[in-house]
Amino acid sequence: MADEMKMRATLQGDVADVKVLMTHVMETGLRKDSKTEKFIPAHFIDHVVATLNGKTVLDAQWGIAVAKNPFINFKIKGAKPGDKIALNASDNLGTQYSGETTVAAK
């Protein structure tokens, strides 16, 4: 699902600056459909885990108030060019999303 997640990791010294942009509605479950007057069911990413060469570097739980098409930026120490950074996310309906990138040399 490469098109659902865009990732970039750039090296600043030995710190990898990782930026991730996901495509997701992040529906809160609190909004009403203007035509049917019914609540639109909640649909949001609730777990996000990032790894550097397989080792967990970020483990997050999200609620409904992370903005639509979520963006996160985090920084990993001790990274080298060519290191693999992977991100796995899942939403409240059980759908899995994943992305991977390689740390670019500066």
Partner: peptide, 10 residues
Amino acid sequence: GTEPYISTRI
């Protein structure tokens, strides 16, 4: 190993 930093949109 991860910097005590996070940036996101809420």
